[in-house]
Simulated assay, not measured.
Amino acid sequence: MYKHVITANLQVRVIDQEMQAIGGQKLDMPSLCSAHLWKTSERWDLMGKELFRLKDRHGAEYCLGPTHEEAVTTLVAHQTTLSYRQLPLLLYQVTRKFRDEPKPKFGLLRGREFYMKDMYSFDADEAAARRTYDSVCRAYAALFARLGLRCVQVQADTGNIGGKLSHEFQLPADVGEDRLLVCGRCSFAANVETLPAGGADCPRCGGAAALAESKGIEVGHTFYLGEKYSRVFGAAFSNAQNKPAVAQMGCYGLGVTRILAAAVEVLSTEDGIRWPGLLAPYQVCVLPPKKGSKVDDAAAVAEELVRALGEAGPNMRGEVVLDDRTHMTIGKRLKDAAGLGYPYVVVVGGGALEDTPRFEVICQETSETTFLSKDALLDLLGRVETV
C-alpha cells in the first residue's frame, strides 16, 4: 500500500508538469456535490445507479462526484469580470472520484473509489476550443511517452458526459475490457462501439478489411463539450466587443490509479513487477553481501556507494535504497528486488574489493547484467530521468 502511495505521488508530479506546461491551473473542488447542480444539468437521473447519492440531516440531496463539470462551470460562471483576454482557461485537479460500479474488479483497474486527474477548459470560440482540445491530447501523448507506455488515441462515444467530440486513450492489453479497431494503413483508431456493426473497412482511408480488432485498457478520456454546460450554468465572458458571450468547453480525464495498475499489467513479466521508470518507488536498490560471507568486508563499500549515489546529482536524491537484510542470501534479496520492481539493482560482492572496484548492475527492464566501475555506475544513473 505504501509503495502505491509513493508511485501515485510521483505520477501526480509528472501529470502536474505536463498540464502546467500547457497552461493548466491546479485547484481543488468538493467531493460532496449538490444535487441541485446535477439536476440543473439533467444528469442527476441520467447517471442512474452509478451515482453515489446521500442526504444530509435536513434532507438536502448530494452526490459523491464521479466528475466535476457542474461544479467547475458554476465556479467560472461566478467570475463576472472574466474577459476574452484571460482565455483559454484550463482548470484541473487530482482527487478522489466515486462511482457505484455494479461489479468492481481487477483491483485498481475498476473500483468504486479512485484517483483521477480531471481538467476543464474554457475558450472564446469553437476554433480556439478545438486548438485547446488538440493541445491537451498532445500533452497526454507526451505524458505516456515519458512513462514508456504505448498508448493509442481512439475515437470514442461521448456517453453521459456529452459533447460533440470524444477520444479515449487506451493501453493495448489482453485483459482490457474495451474492444478497439485500429487501421493497419493509416492512423485511424476507434472504440468498436462507435462504428457500425461488422464494419471492417477503414472509414478514413477507405482501406478494405484494414481494421484489426484488439483489446485495451482505457486510461484517459477527452471531450469537446461546446456549450452543453456553459450555457446552462451561465459561464460567460466579455468578448472583444465588450459583449457577453458563452464559453466553449472541453473536459479531459486521466485515471491516476488506473494508469498505475494498467502499466504494471502491460510491462511486468512472470518474474516480477515492472514499473514505468518515472513511477518506481526507488530507482536503485543496493544489495550488500550476506553477513558472515567471504566478502563481508564489502558491506562498508555498499554503504559508501549508497551515499555516493544519493549525492551524484539532484535526480538521484531519495532514489537509492539499501537492502540491509544481510541475514538473507543475495539470491533471495535479488528475487525480492525483482518482485518490487526497482529499475536498477546493484550487487556489491567480491568485485567491490578489487584494486579497481567493480559492481554487478542489473537493469530490470532489459534483464541485462553489466559490471561497472564506480564512476561508470555514477555516470549511468546520473542520466536516469526522475521527477
Rank of each mutant, 00 (worst) to 15 (best):
I15F: 10
G65R: 09
P196K: 08
A338S: 03
G255A: 11
Q86L: 03
I362N: 00
Y282G: 02
L143W: 07
K49I: 02
V154N: 02
R383Y: 02
K39Y: 01
H58N: 04
L254N: 09
A247G: 01
V136A: 11
S293M: 10
E177V: 08
L87T: 05
E101P: 03
R185M: 03
A141M: 14
V232M: 05
Y92W: 04
W44K: 00
G313S: 06
V5E: 06
T366M: 02
T257I: 14
G253L: 13
S214D: 04
D157S: 13
C285G: 00
L211H: 08
V5L: 09
V384T: 13
I273V: 15
A190Q: 07
L91F: 01
Q93Y: 08
Y224F: 15
M316F: 06
D118F: 07
R274C: 06
H167K: 07
M119L: 12
A142R: 15
K374W: 01
S187R: 14
D324G: 08
T366E: 00
L64A: 10
E385Q: 14
Y282A: 12
F233L: 15
V320E: 04
F169N: 11
G255C: 13
S230N: 05
L181P: 00
T132Y: 13
T366A: 04
R85D: 02
L309G: 05
F144I: 10
W44V: 00
V384D: 04
C202Q: 08
L309C: 08
L305C: 06
D16P: 07
E354R: 14
I217Y: 07
A312H: 05
N9A: 12
A338G: 08
R85Y: 05
D118L: 09
Y224M: 13
F223W: 12
G207A: 06
L82P: 02
L260D: 10
N242V: 13
V246F: 12
E303F: 03
L267K: 15
R138T: 12
C363W: 04
S293C: 08
L27Q: 02
Y224P: 04
F98N: 08
F144C: 08
S214K: 04
D297T: 11
E218A: 11
D201W: 04
G253S: 12
L143E: 04
L51C: 00
G48C: 01
D125F: 06
I330C: 04
A312W: 02
V12G: 04
F237P: 08
G216Y: 05
R317H: 05
A245I: 09
K117E: 12
T73V: 07
Q79P: 00
D178N: 14
V232S: 10
G250K: 08
K335V: 13
A35L: 07
E304M: 07
E319S: 04
A197R: 05
L260Y: 02
D271R: 14
F359I: 09
D134Y: 12
E368T: 08
L381M: 10
V14R: 09
Y120E: 10
D100Y: 09
A300C: 01
S83G: 00
D324H: 01
P289S: 13
M47Y: 10
A300D: 12
L108N: 14
C363G: 11
E360H: 02
T370L: 07
G313I: 13
I362V: 14
Q93P: 01
L225F: 05
F106W: 03
P276M: 03
M19L: 15
A35C: 07
L109P: 01
E61A: 12
A142Y: 01
G350K: 13
Q93R: 14
V152K: 10
D123C: 13
R13G: 11
V306N: 01
